[in-house]
Design a protein around this nucleic acid. Structure first.
Lengths: 361, 361
DNA sequence: CTGAAAGCGCTTACAG
DNA sequence: CTGAAAGCGCTTACAG
């Protein structure tokens, strides 16, 4: 059935029989140029004095052999790897993917390569990864999600992070990072909730239910807290009981939560997911139940995961402004890496923006 | 408005005033244990003879100081970095994110760290990244998307890939990788299209339109080719003209393409996106036009980006089986890395699976 | 402007 | 079982 010319299933073709050749070194270049290795080093690095014609001659050879200095040897001298470790729970989550994408752009343009690790939200894995990054001697570490977001923390964990941040420049993307004494970049949730609710109020919404999350995690806890405050100020009815216990930050949490909510007469006129995944799940449950969106009920969320045209969620959402966010994460880390002194505990709040979509009037 | 206790905007707190201390070395341990550095090395690596009590004593000190051998020094000796480079166009694309996630799991468990690079689909960026990975002396490289998928290739590019694969173990996730003489892991598109169309036929569908893509790229070209073949075999009407020219693999391509298609009377009873992003876009356009899915028209796609409960697309899709795929990418690369001989050009086809969802009867 | 030499921190034959 | 020594490939004061 299948055109066999595409089928290389058993295609084994020997190529070039020579073993991968040992990369050439600065000495090979030096010998051929008739100079010392020091001179070659100077020609390549551009540091130190060197006569123009020797430099040219050496650079020609470098070109000819496509020579690159061995990074380990350089690292061993300099003590730097130009490598950054970046830990996320799961890169398939658009929130983390978007931050990473923007971060990597800046890191690359500054000559850093980034190692991306998935902790799977597992605390033990997270510890192991941290440990292996330390072993790898990365120049810096960024950590998102996982334990850092927990409201309750063990002393052991606080000590673990505290120690690593004293050893390696470290930036977290979590609220309340002052608990670890580490630098952090985080979205100004207070501002985000305010933007969102002010807009909703102006559109005539009056009963705001939050769904998903769980008080054990700051990303939900803070939003709830702010929603209550701002609801009072704006004279909106706010119900945050739908921040169900457990770690409920996915589509299914929203979907199931909404189904439960729909078992009783619906009082809310707008449902707010702790993030867009939850909001989309809730919206889908409502549609399935025959409700019209936004005529019968509106949905809003956080993180703008339908950013651009990737996969529109149609959900009105508070955007973290990934470009600014990712850049700030890099620049914060970069500053610490450059300073080469004990790092300050400094939290940078990024001002979010409201993105309007069809899920609200 | 905002509780000031959360606001660390200007929080600058000096901690520990000592400069980051210089990491201790194997010599420090040796001195304190009263042995030579060689003995310490043996104790840590577990290689070579060493008396049990010295070993224990040394390991105690290692524990005490939380000592880790400097990786660069080890690398410099061994010539390996235990680091792999992984290039994707954009990690925000769930297809790449899913492959990466599975790959990284295996890489990590084998002691490799993975550097994730976004090429942005830009050919020049891709070249630069390849170059920097080479400079970094990674032990292996995986490359997805970008130029590798192009049907027409410049000789320069073929040479570029060819050279790098002779230098560094290299696996591509692209069809027709034999053009570069490199190993590759790819989905068996013929099988995928067959699974899909056989299922559709059995459900009574008879007019199959492909949308998105572009003949310049194998991921679309092959699907089109197979669809025509299999359509003939199954006696289904197949129209692949909606594989519009240009690089059309996103939501918008599907959305706009479908709008155009709807300008004339609709003949198709099922629309197939070259991938799920395109399929979702097309589906949304149809819904917007008042069509019912799947009653009036069905939608199918490739890649199963709504995998699990991440963000359901509700689109019936051909799944690459990310777990098997990602694992195979790693094992293929791993084998080449271990062999330490010129790499075979070997294409592994992964058998996909059909995932049924609400977008079809 | 250039080279000989030391040193970055490890590992591993080699010789006890 | 253990240590002195060489070597991995660079960089950089130091001395011309």
């Amino acid at each position: 059935m299948q055109d066999k010319s595409w089928d290389e299933r058993d295609g084994e073709v020997r190529l070039d029989e020579q073993a991968r050749t040992k990369p050439i070194t600065i000495y090979d270049i030096a010998k051929e140029a008739g100079v010392s290795s020091a001179t070659v080093s100077r020609a390549i690095s551009g540091k130190g004095y060197i006569s123009e014609n020797k430099k040219l001659q050496i650079l020609d050879l470098v070109e000819k052999y496509n020579f690159r200095p061995n990074t380990f040897a350089q690292n061993l001298k300099s003590g730097f790897t130009k490598t950054i470790g970046f830990i996320v729970p799961h890169i398939g989550n658009m929130y983390f993917a978007s931050v990473y994408y923007e971060f990597e752009k800046w890191a690359s343009s500054h000559g850093y390569m980034t190692i991306l690790l998935n902790s799977k939200g597992d605390y033990e894995v997270e510890s192991k990864l941290l440990y292996s990054l330390k072993e790898k001697r990365v120049d810096g570490i960024v950590m998102m999600g996982g334990r850092m977001d927990a409201v309750e923390l063990s002393d052991d964990y606080i000590r673990e992070i505290s120690e690593i941040k004293d050893l390696i420049p470290f930036v977290s993307c979590a609220a309340k990072s002052e608990r670890f004494g580490c630098a952090s970049v985080y979205t100004d949730d207070g501002k985000g909730v305010e933007l969102l609710m002010t807009h909703l109020k102006s559109k005539g919404y009056n009963s705001f239910y939050m769904i998903g999350g769980g008080d054990e995690f700051y990303p939900a806890y803070l939003k709830k807290k702010y929603a209550l405050e701002i609801g009072k100020k704006l004279d909106m009815k706010v119900n945050v009981n739908w921040l169900t216990p457990g770690m409920h930050f996915d589509y299914r949490a929203g979907y199931n939560g909404m189904k439960m909510l729909l078992e009783k007469p619906l009082e809310a006129d707008v449902i707010c997911g702790v993030n867009d995944y939850v909001a989309v799940g809730a919206r889908d449950a409502a549609l399935e139940a025959g409700l019209r969106v936004p005529e019968d009920i509106a949905f809003v969320g956080f993180d703008d995961i339908g950013i651009g045209t990737v996969l529109p969620t149609h959900i009105t959402s508070v955007s973290p402004c990934y470009d600014i966010f990712g850049k700030k994460v890099f620049t914060s880390l970069h500053k610490i890496m450059q300073d080469n002194k004990p790092q300050d505990m400094k939290t940078t709040l990024i001002r979010p923006e409201l993105k309007l979509h069809e899920s609200t009037k």
